[in-house]
Design a protein around this nucleic acid. Sequence first.
RNA 1: GGGGGCAUAGCUCAGUUGGGAGAGCAUCGCACUGGCAGUGCGAAGGUCAAGGGUUCGAGUCCCUUUGCCUCCA
Length: 896
Amino acid sequence: MAVSRPTDAHALRTAFLDFFAERGHERVASSPLVPFNDPTLLFVNAGMVQFKDVFTGRDKRDYRRATTAQRCLRAGGKHNDLDNVGFTPRHHTLFEMLGNFSFGDYFKRDAINWAWEFLTQVLGFPADKLVVSVFNGEGDDAPFDQEAYDLWLELVPKDRIYAFNAKENFWQMGDTGPCGPCSEIHIFRGEGPAPGTGGQPGKGPAFEDAAYMELWNLVFMQYEKHEGGRMEKLPAPSVDTGAGLERLAAILEGASSNYGTSLLSPLVDKGKQLAGVSGDQGEREASFRVIADHARATAFLIADGVTPEKSGRSYVLRRIMRRAIRHGTLVGLDEPFFHEICDLVVEQFGDAYPELREARAAIADAVQIEEQAFRRTLDRGLKMVEATLAALPERAGAFPVDPAAKLYDTFGFPIDLTRVIAVEHGLTLDEDEVAARVRELQGAGDAGFVGGDAKINDVYFELANELGATEFVGYAEVEQQATLRAIIVDGARVESASAGASVELIFDRTCFYGESGGQIGDHGVIVGGADPKGARLEVSDSQKPTGGLIVHHASVTQGRIAVGDSLTLRVDVARRDAIRRNHSATHMLHHALREQLGKHVAQKGSLVAPDRLRFDFSHPRPLTLEERAAIERQVNAMVMANAATGTQEMSLANAKQAGAIGLFGEKYADEVRVVTIAADSVELCGGTHVARAGDIGLFKIVSEGGVAQGVRRLEAVTGTGALDWVQHTASIVEQATAELHARDADDLLVRLAKLQEELKLKERELAQIERKLATGGAGESETTEVAGVKLLVRKIGVADPKVMRDAADTLRDRLGSGVVVLAAERDGKASLLVAVTSDLAGKKVHAGKLVGALAGHIDGRGGGRPDLAQAGGPKLAGLDQAVADAPVQLAAQLAK
RNA sequence: GGGGGCAUAGCUCAGUUGGGAGAGCAUCGCACUGGCAGUGCGAAGGUCAAGGGUUCGAGUCCCUUUGCCUCCA
C-alpha cells in the first residue's frame, strides 16, 4: 500500500489525491467558487461542476481521469441551509468535496473497488461498519443496477447492500443530458457492526436514520436523457464521485461533529480564545461554530474575487460575514474579531489552497471594513430600537411588528437582536411574524438569479472541437492571408455566402483580435477569394466565444465566399492603434492606482475601446481631485519615460513568481502571456499593446464615479482622444475667462468666488433696504381700531415673502398688541400677509382665517398659523379691495 | 437587477395635512472663580446634496442626477 494512513484532515486530503494520482488520475486544482461559464449556478456546489461540459462532451481535456479536492459553497439561492449552519454537526456553507472522475474511461468496477480500498485500507475504516446502496430500478426508466450490485457483492456481505429508488439513487444533471444510477457508501455509527438488511435488498433502515452517515456518492453516468424522457445508453459511460472531506475527517479523527475535526476546531478555538473562554460553551457553542464555518466561506470567497456588496454573489458573502459578526456579538466579541479568524483560515488552508495566501491582505482589508460597517449599522439600529421603545405606550405587551420589520428591511438591523432587546424590556416579539411582514414589504419579487454570462451556442463548441483554437497572429501582423474554415449564418453552418449576407467566419489563423480581457474586437476588411471578381467583406466585430475560437462578424458587400477560400484579412489599423494606446494606458493606470491609493486596489472590470478606456476597481470612497491629479501625473511620467513594452510567454507559476498581476478568480491556462511596461507594470494579459509607452502621447482621466459599494470607475482618454478633450475643455475655460474679464484661468476662480460673495452681500443689503422701505414711517395715522383691536393695513413695494415677514414682524412689535395686514405686488401677482401679536393670536384673531377671507379678492388661496399667514393670487386689481376689506373681515372675526 | 431609506450648522441629529430653519456637542466672547473644572449669558456658523417641476408659498410634495445605508434575487 503506497499511501499511508493519514493522521489529520489535511493529510487525508493529500492522501486521497495521492491515492488516485497513483491510479492514473490527473491531479486537477480546485476551481474557484465562482462558476466559470455557468450562468445558472450561483456558486460551485459540487465536485463535478468544473467538468460539466466534459461530461456532456461539449468540452475536451487531454486527460480521461481526474481527481480533485474541490471547494464548494452552499449558501445562496432557493434552498440553502444557512440558518442551520452551526446548529447541527454537519451543515456547512463552505465544504470540500473529494472526487475522482472518469471521462469515458474506467467504469463501475474500478470506481467501486477504489472507493472501498481507500476507505478500508487507507483510512482503515472497519469494513463491517460500512453499508452501501444501489439503484433498485424504481422511479425512472432505467433498470435495477445489477452490475453495481454484483460488484459490491464481491466486497460486502449481501445484507449490507441496500437498494433504493430513483429519489435516492439516481442522478441527473438536468432535465436532459447525462444521467445514471449511483451507489452510496454510508457508515454505521452505533455500537458494533452495522445491522443487516435481513437478507433482502431494498428492505431495512432508511439512511436518514441518524445512526448512518453518508460518506461517498458514486455516480455512474451511463445514459443520456433526451427531450420527453427518452433514455439512451452512452457509448462511453463516465464516473463522477464525491466524498465530503469534513465527514471523512470526522470519522477518521473520531469526532462526533465536523466542528471537532482538525479542519474546524482550530477556528472554533480561536474564537473562544478571543472571547476569553475555553471548553464547551453549551448553548453558545453554536455561535463559535457559525463563526468558524463562516470564516472559511469568507476567506475562500474573497480569495476567489468576491467582495461583500449588495448584489448577487457579493450579497451572499456579505450575509455570511454579517451572520458571523452577529454571532460574535452574541458571545461577547464586541471589538472587531472576524478578520483574525479569517486570517487563521489562510494559515490553516494556505498549503492546500495557495490562492488564499495570495489574497491574504485583500481578505483582511475586506473583512475589517465590513466589520466596521456592520457595527455602525448595529449602533444606528440600536438607537432606533430605543426610540421605538420610548414611544411605546406604558402597558404594551409586544414590540410592534412594523417597526421591527422596517428596522430589518430598511436599516439592516437583525430581527433576532430586536427580539432580544424587546425581551430585556419585558416585551415579546414574534420573529416569524416580522419575517412575514418583511416578505410582504418585499412584494415577493422572485425573478430568479440572472447570471452575467450568456449561454454559449453549441455550434461554437462543435467548431472548437473540430477546428481547434484559431491561431492569432495579430500581435505582429495587421494583414494576413488565411484559409476560411467555417461560415455561420443565423447560428447554422453553411458552405458559402454571397453579397448581402451577414456571416460569422472562422479561419485557420487571423490577425483580428477577438474580444477578451476587456479589449473589444477588431474591425477591418476581408478581400480576395475564389470568386474571379474578388469578394469583399466588412468586419464589424470579432469575438472569442469559447476554446480559443476567434469568430469574425462580417457582412459580405461584394462577391461570394466559400469554405476553403484563401482570403486576405486586413485590420483597421488606425482603430487598432487607438485600442493599443488605451490598453497599455489601462495597465499603467492600474499600476498608478495601486501606487497612489494602496494595494487594496484590484481590477473589477475593464473596457478597452478605441475612443476611451474604462477601469473599475475596488476602492472604498470617491477619489479626490488631488488623487486624480497624482494618478494622471504618474501615468504620464511613465509615458514620457517612453520605455519599451515587452511580452513574454511563460508558465503561470513563473508569472506569479515575477509578480504579475492577474484577476482574482480568473481561470488562466498553464502557459500565460505577460505584458511588462517600464518594468513597473507586470500583468497577465492577452491583449495588444503599444511598442513604447510614449506612443500613448497623453493620458487624461475624464470621469470618476461609483458602480457599486466599494467599486469606483474611472474613464480616461489617450492620444488624439486626449488632445481633443484637452482642447475642448481649454476653450470652454478661455471663453469663461473672457466672459468674466478675468486675467487668466486662475483668476477665473477668484472672480467667481468674489462674484458669489458680492451677490450674497447684495442680497442681504437689498433685503434690509426693502424692509426699511416697508416698515419706514409707520405713523399712528395708519393704525385704526376695530372693536378695540389695533389694526395696521399697508401696501408695500416688496413682495418677497421673507421681506414681508420681517416687515410685518417689525410693525407688529411696534403695535405692541394688534393685527398687521400687508399687501404687495410681485411678478404680476398679488401677495397678502397677516401677522397677529401673540396675545391675540388664536384667541381673538386667527391670521390664517383672516388671510383666507381676504384672498378671495385676488382670486387666490392662502393660509398659515394663527399668528402668521400668507396668501397670494393672480388678480392684481383686487389688492385694493383686499386692503379695504381688512377692517371688515377683522370685525367679523371679532364679532364671533 | 428590483424594493425600502438617508443627505439640514464643524460633529450627532430634530423639523407630523406645505406657512418665520432648530437642538445638543464643538468653536468664539463676556461674567462668576486665585487658577482649572464647572456654571450662566451671548455670538458666530446654513446655496436644507445638485438640477428641474407643482404651489400664492417647498427643508417638507413630484421627477432627474450624484453620494451613502439597507433588504431581496
